[in-house]
Design a protein around this nucleic acid. Sequence first.
DNA 1: GGGCAACGCCCA
DNA 2: GGGCGTTGCCCG
Length: 827
Amino acid sequence: MYVDVILRQKGRFSDMLFSYRVPDSLENKIDIGYRVSVPFGKSNKPIEAIVNNLKSENESEGTDFEIKEIFDVLGDEPLISRENMELISWMRDRYICTYLDCLNLFFPKGYTLNSTKIVKPVFSIEELTVEQEMSLDQAERKIINELYLSKEDVSYDSLTSRHSKSKLDSLISKGLVNIQWSYKEVVNEKKIKTVYLDEDLKCKIQMDSDYINCLKLGKKQLETVNFLILNDAVEQSALLDLLGVSNQTIKSLEKKGIIKIKEESHFRAPRQFLTVENKKIDLNSQQREVVDRIIEGIREQSRKPYLIHGVTGSGKTEVFLELIEYVLSQGMESVFLVPEIALTPQTIARVKNRFGNIVGVFHSQLSEGEKYDVFREVKNGNIRVVIGTRSAIFLPFDSLGLIIIDEEHDFSYKSEKTPKYDAIEVARYKAFKSNVAVVLGSATPSVPDYYNAKNGDYELLELNKRANNNLMPEISIVDMRKELHSGNSSPLSKELVAKMDLELKKGNQVILFLNKRGYANFMECKDCGHVFKCKNCDITLTNHKSLKKGICHYCGYEEHIPERCPKCNMTNIGSVGVGTEKIEELVSNLFPNHKTLRMDRDSTKKKNGVQKILEKFNKGEADILIGTQMLSKGHDFANVTLVGIISADLMLNFPDFKSYEQTFQLITQVSGRAGRGEKLGQVVLQTYNTEHFAIRSAANYDFKGFYETEIKLRKTFGYEPFNNIIRVVFANSDESVAKENSFRFRDTLKYLMEEKGIDSVRSILGPNECSIRMINNKFRWQVIIKNHGVDIKLLKSMIKYICIKKYENVFSKGIDISIEINPNTFI
DNA sequence: GGGCAACGCCCA
DNA sequence: GGGCGTTGCCCG
């Protein structure tokens, strides 16, 4: 038998399948998805690999390379399922990346194979002939003596660090010592040591309490034993803490046979529960209808994904929970994807409260060990419902029945790291291949997804009423141009302040939304016009007044803001624009008797920062919550009756074709935070663009109207969903290198396209400098490729050929190339 | 990406 | 010729 494997070895060359022979003894221990160790390279170094497919014949017969035999099969079950192995190949093509990039998504870092080179003498001392011994010089004799004396394996590296390398080489060429590879499997499991008394001893002590004195123990040891008489089994770390004894004490007690230490693997996943009221909510008729329809689809094994378009507060989460329950009852597992785990503590709590300890939480902020543990528990079948971010979709479920993608319009479902996959696309692939029900939900579906639904690629289901039967909060638009003309230059309009005053007096809570953290947009010297910019990126520094610093919101670079302008030495440094910090300052001056809270990336940096702020606000410890788009993500505040959107224009004027869509989404989502409880809500929307269709339709809750206008625009300009757009960014610390390579790429691609008779003029845009010229000290140039009727597969294979296979031939050394399909943003 | 042979340079 | 750093090639 033969297998093709994917090597867990980095490098352009290793991005291919390698064939190996399977020795007869391993034939029934191996299958697709198993981990194996294989010899690789001239030295036959053991490398870890995953079996991609099985073959009965050696297909490479007659080729000039020799087929090697695999060393071993690691583990007695496949690590990755057959379906997921197919998904890996699909993703490699789809996202123009390597096998390894994809493989790593399915692979907790807990498994590693460590290979070391070992030096061993060929003959034993007795076998060594006199001639052989005579031929050695002093240095060689020293080495070989060391090898004979050592009880353990001696590694090549440690030997050469102490002895001459060439002496060792000469021993090898004389045939006296041998070099072998040895490998060790490392599994990242946390072990907990539990300490308990030896049973016999315990009995003796219980029979005769004086027996303990016969042991002649030191003070600390005696203390430990006495403690263990009272406490059956204690974690070693706790023992050390409690009694202040040292590791040594424990060890010597163990040596004497007085105590025993037991090592057990331990599940590390943090099990923090946030308690919310566990009320079982009865579904309203609309919710019921949606649930029934999807259950029917699951029964019929319809492979079509569902898109639930439900207004904010329509109770999508309840629908999801109901579906999870059904799928569980059918013996299948579910995964519930959310945009950002930190922002959804309420959702996690609801899932956990409903389904108890079969619920796991998975996201990229877990430590590698914690990820490994969730992975293992999912594989064991102990975790059957996972709530997590996009990467949770790759967990090793046995029979996944349901993938829920909440807030499906959110950008975070597209990965910004290689492989730049889209979790929604992966889910759709799974729905198609393995009959998993995929349910997308949003109050503001993305334009391409709504288009898919209208085209029949998704089944569209609607929830157009709030679960509590409240009306949607009324949105009133405030024209900030008029506000300015009437002499109010404050970022807070008179109408907003008046309404805040009214609601606060009634004892209600207010949310103010501004999509800009920090104090102000940027800082400028009003005398010479000097603008403070980041040293690494082409970005203005945002003023964080509370810290007296300017911070780059891209790379995190910080700079103390001096009193005097570094250019003209004048003191007239002023801030332009507004951020959440400035709003907070304004509001506390206006309403000194009301407490404010601020929620943005700065105020939530600490562990559970978001959760703490949300809890405080929910308990009513503050009346006004000021925040960035973190606020928009599905939070439930019962007592909020007024939402103020400070500026709807920040997003609108972003240099990106998705900015209208994003503006619409943000306004709708943020407005949705008002009036979720018993009381009605209202929204004040401040803008300089009162007539813009994105703002108008958002204010009227007219998703369909927005969609109709936006889809026409996109058709005219050939954007998603009418074209696939591939963006290739070249980054280098030397601007001319970045530029030159982007041109080389364009020219090579053009050449290849024209060779195939494809018109390249309509498809290739650029090269252009990116809107953000420099990030992290690297200049960025981009080429954008639209597929305008060209087969996307052909285009991608060309790009892959240039950027991966012919990388060395085409590009300068050290240039960063990032390839993205339908990226979130083009800045 | 990494292992390794081949190469070239320095030094005695 | 040995010692050692650099380079370029190849990997089932």
